[in-house]
């Protein structure tokens, strides 16, 4: 609960820290994400009372309790639906949804899909740690095939979902990925998401040091990350590697990794285009060890958001009607009078 309501201009990170103790496990990747979000908020210049965080169930979904904004910790998988109702009826609010790989892609997959395709102006952060943490370590819909967990002692036989591919399939208008430990990159992606009009979907690769430690170690380890991450930048060639000496180019209908030199130059590489759906899809399938994992904005396109369209329909109908008159509404159609 807040005791202070100072002018929005003077807000700093501390103003977005609630008085509740953060109860994630020590070392959890969620701490870093929370810190970056709290750091970003004052920059946005949005009055604190106009910001709402809505979540489902799971470790990540405790997030709203730690933000000193309006918050709603709801039920498993349903945050996108609840957020849609709020944003559609209150377009003046800035609404963030915090979900996880289980909450967003398993029990709540349907709602996520439909929020994305409607393009409701929500900022959806999906913390992907490829495990169920709160229920103590069962495999999730993003767990790799063969994963041994408490519920899959002989290895998981499910094929995983790729969150970015799913979001692109639903034609989300903003699709991005970042990493819990890459503070600067994460902040820049979150800023882009906050500026987007429409659904912004951000997958955040997040470590669960208790039940899935090293979930993305092959992408985040300091000594190999330059070779394992492909930082996407609109209009720039797809270059990576410690010495910027590797790149991605088209080979028929597929992508391939090439080393620069020996007749291969930057001009041969693909140039990232945030508005090209086919390229975004191809990039969404890249994963180590064969490829680097792309991070950054896969896709950013403009489409009128759902909530604005809904508001316009209501406003147009109101203008057409003039002053609402219940008596006129009640008396619509054929009526007759019974005299006393």
């Amino acid at each position: 609960m807040s005791e202070n309501a100072e002018a929005t201009t003077a807000l700093n990170r501390k103003d977005f820290v609630s008085d509740q103790d953060v109860r994630w496990c020590p070392g959890c990747g969620d701490y870093s994400i929370l810190a970056q979000v709290q750091r970003l908020m004052p920059e946005l210049g949005i009055p604190r009372e106009n910001i709402v965080f809505i979540s489902g169930i799971g470790c990540s979904s405790r997030f709203p309790y730690y933000m000193n904004t309006y918050g709603f910790h709801s039920i498993h998988g349903r945050a996108p639906a609840i957020a849609t109702g709020l944003k559609a009826s209150r377009p003046d609010l800035t609404v963030w949804v915090v979900t996880g790989d289980g909450d967003g892609l398993s029990i709540g997959g349907n709602h996520l899909l439909h929020a994305l395709r409607r393009n409701v102006d929500l900022k959806i952060l999906l913390f992907n740690n490829r495990i169920y943490g709160l229920t103590k370590g069962q495999y999730s819909p993003t767990s790799e095939r063969g994963k041994v967990t408490k519920s899959t002692p002989l290895g998981s036989i499910d094929y995983p979902l790729h969150p970015i591919t799913v979001a692109l399939g639903a034609e989300a208008t903003f699709v991005a990925r970042s990493i819990d430990v890459e503070a600067k990159h994460l902040t820049s992606v979150l800023r882009r998401a906050s500026e987007h009009k429409g659904t912004a979907f951000v997958e955040i690769l997040q470590n669960c040091n208790i039940f899935n430690d090293g979930a993305f170690a092959n992408i985040t380890d300091k000594d190999q990350k330059a070779d394992a991450q492909l930082v996407l930048e609109h209009g720039k060639p797809l270059l990576f590697g410690k010495n910027h000496d590797k790149g991605i180019r088209m080979a028929g209908h597929k992508l391939e990794v090439v080393e620069l030199g020996n007749g291969v130059s930057e001009a041969d590489l693909l140039v990232h285009d945030e508005q090209d759906p086919a390229l975004a899809f191809l990039l969404s399938t890249l994963m180590p060890p064969t490829f680097p994992a792309p991070v950054g904005v896969f896709r950013a396109v403009d489409r009128p958001p759902y909530d604005a369209a809904m508001g316009e329909q209501v406003e147009r109908a109101k203008a057409k009607l003039g002053t609402p008159d219940l008596d006129a509404l009640f008396n619509q159609g054929d009526t007759w009078d019974v005299a006393p």
Partner: peptide
């Protein structure tokens, strides 16, 4: 939401 000073979860 939108009411200053009443932020709550």
């Amino acid at each position: 939401p939108g009411t200053p000073g009443l932020e709550h979860r």
